[in-house]
Design a protein around this nucleic acid. Structure first.
Lengths: 150, 150
DNA sequence: TTCACTGCAAAACGTTTGCATGTAT
DNA sequence: ATACATGCAAACGTTTTGCAGTGAA
């Protein structure tokens, strides 16, 4: 059973309706070449490429529903940019380059100490499964150091 | 020399113009009683409380300028919510409760290992000075465990 | 005097909503 | 048959922009 079928099956179990639109949206969410996360607009564009068109409002409503049902994660990349991915993508952090906008995925293992510290010190249960960190990637650092402008 | 004067003096050195509006905005940024970070709208409201009114467009343009000049930090609290604070506030992380929206400040010392790991493993220089982490605060955890609804 | 800055209003932007229609169950 | 989901268009809240006028240097 692939990712699409898994999600569709979950919806069926939850007595939620399986519409052609929802199938297209779920397919778009899982049909990611590398393993990128997409904005609502990107998912919309990908769905439009199919035979039938789906209204943007439906994209938003369906994404909200999938997030609410715990089948999809909503990740805030900062600057008001939200991206979506199926939960199958697993936990990882996003290293967002402020310069070029490129997003690199990294392991969250190193954050375990932080999680424990926050609970012990502040009683705060941090959700570190899809955290976004901002900074500068290797390529942009080299470009900046060679230019050294401004 | 207080915070306001420091920023004004920086602007003067950079040959940028000191207008009454800019003074009011800088004053609003530093006149923080309890809550140290404010949205553009909150700053606008605080400035309006003064004798003269300042247009919201000026608030945005001035904040952008101050951030660009490195005098103010723009912090993304997620959900498209951006807040601003003078750089004098120093480095700390924001623990944002998804339930009640309350923001707790915490020490970033514990993140030093993470920073080193990211540089060593991915060549990524993370800006951890004003990071936001999402999760659930102590108070909301207790409420949830007692209700156990949904 | 000059040109950066401001106010105003309009536009842009991504997202949400109300309502009539359509359709999965 | 009956909810529930969809399309459409309009509303939304926040941020940005063009332009003419103002004022700091």
């Amino acid at each position: 059973m692939n990712d699409v079928e898994q999600i569709i099956e979950s919806l069926r179990r939850k007595q939620l309706r399986i519409t052609p639109q929802r199938e297209l949206i779920v397919r778009a969410l899982t049909d990611v070449d590398d393993d990128e996360h997409q904005t609502a607009e990107e998912i919309h564009a990908r769905v439009q490429a199919s035979t039938s068109a789906v209204n943007i409002a439906t994209i938003y409503r369906t994404l909200d529903m999938l997030v609410e049902e715990g089948l999809v994660t909503r990740v805030d990349l900062g600057g008001g940019k939200e991206v979506f991915a199926t939960v199958q993508h697993g936990m990882h952090m996003h290293l967002v380059c402020r310069q070029c906008g490129h997003v690199l995925d990294a392991d969250t293992q190193v954050l375990q100490d932080v999680r424990q510290y926050l609970v012990a010190e502040h009683g705060f249960s941090a959700d570190l499964e899809h955290i976004s960190l901002f900074g500068m990637c290797e390529a942009c650092k080299q470009l900046t150091s060679s230019h050294e402008e401004l």
